[in-house]
Design a protein around this nucleic acid. Structure first.
Lengths: 186, 186
DNA sequence: TGCCAAAACTAATACCATTAGTTATTGTTA
DNA sequence: TAACAATAACTAATGGTATTAGTTTTGGCA
């Protein structure tokens, strides 16, 4: 009556991520995940401990993939172009994985150690990318915070249709990055 | 048995806003609002049509107050300082009204006409603030989008503890704004 | 004073996450 | 191969959510 499917924590996580990206993070419920996997909601508890734990896992995967997207986009590029490449890697990830991206910030458990470390890798990647400007440690902190504000703000507003008519968004992004980079020079 | 309280749509809205700012927007439910007003949840439907309609109203109020906060902070200031003042007005509002600020973006009904117009007033305020730079219309669009990205990104990351240890946040904000302003100059 | 509309109520529906307890399946071991 | 143990599915139930329907109470006005 209930033939076992080859289910695992991984498969559940993947299903949740697909729902988040395709239908929005608010559609990620035990019911929708179970339906996608052809099981009843309580059966999910054989693989995950709770919906909120699953969302924490989503956040972790999201942060790791965000890192990969940034890093892959930067390979073999240097100087200002490297900062631009990192930024486009960020934006591309946010655009291609809207639900997963959103989950990285709506993290229910922000003080999770794994999440902290994964997020820190991104910060370190950004720090490393601006090393050739020779900022002081404190200036580095400010500059990276600004970069992240710009990237998250743009991604977030774009997704929420916050810019009104979605015209010339790529052009705006390039202009904004150029503006910020210019301001970074002393 | 049920003496009438002087309830109104306004009072319901105020209760919801207080819950959002004090306990977080996710705590804004028919149950919590009703409890705060000493009535049963279904009685709320005598004043509002649904929770989602109420949240749309919250978004509108939030955007209007955000506008006021920015405008009030700018009064009598000109030049670069005026852009800084507008920005601090934005940040102050986001900090002082975290729940209401969040509701402005999590707007369930983004194509609401009133909301669009209120949001447009903010954009126009920003456009007017950078008029003395003599940008082209298109440059204005990009610059204002960048400013909004910076402001929303910073506010949002700060609230989500996205910056890690919350050290020197005001200093970072000033540094970032200075950086962006410097980049705006040609 | 009596009536009516507004605003409260209770009860019910349909969703949600989660837990407890049960059954079925699968892999391992005697 | 037969039996057992662990795993993973199930059903049923609990308490939470928003919402609707139908009922009662209240307070102001004719």
């Amino acid at each position: 009556m209930s033939p076992r499917i080859g289910l695992s924590k991984q498969k559940v996580l993947e299903a949740a991520i697909n729902i988040a990206d395709d239908e929005g993070i608010e559609k990620v419920t035990m019911a929708t995940i179970a339906k996608k996997l052809n099981i009843k909601p309580p059966s999910l508890y054989n693989h995950i401990s709770s919906l909120s734990a699953l969302k924490t896992e989503m956040a972790l995967v999201g942060i790791q993939q965000l890192y990969s997207s940034m890093k892959a986009n930067m390979e073999g590029i240097s100087g200002d172009e490297r900062v631009i490449a990192l930024s486009k890697g960020y934006l591309n990830f946010a655009r291609n994985h809207p639900g997963l991206y959103e989950s990285t910030l709506a993290a229910p458990n922000a003080q999770d150690k794994e999440i902290y470390e994964a997020a820190n890798k991104i910060v370190q990647l950004a720090v490393q990318t601006i090393k050739h400007y020779n900022f002081t440690k404190e200036e580095e902190l400010h500059v990276v915070r600004g970069l992240r504000s710009l990237l998250h703000g743009f991604s977030s507003l774009e997704k929420a249709n916050g810019f009104g008519i979605p015209i010339k968004l790529n052009h705006s992004f390039d202009y904004i990055m150029t503006t910020y980079l210019k301001g970074m020079k002393r």
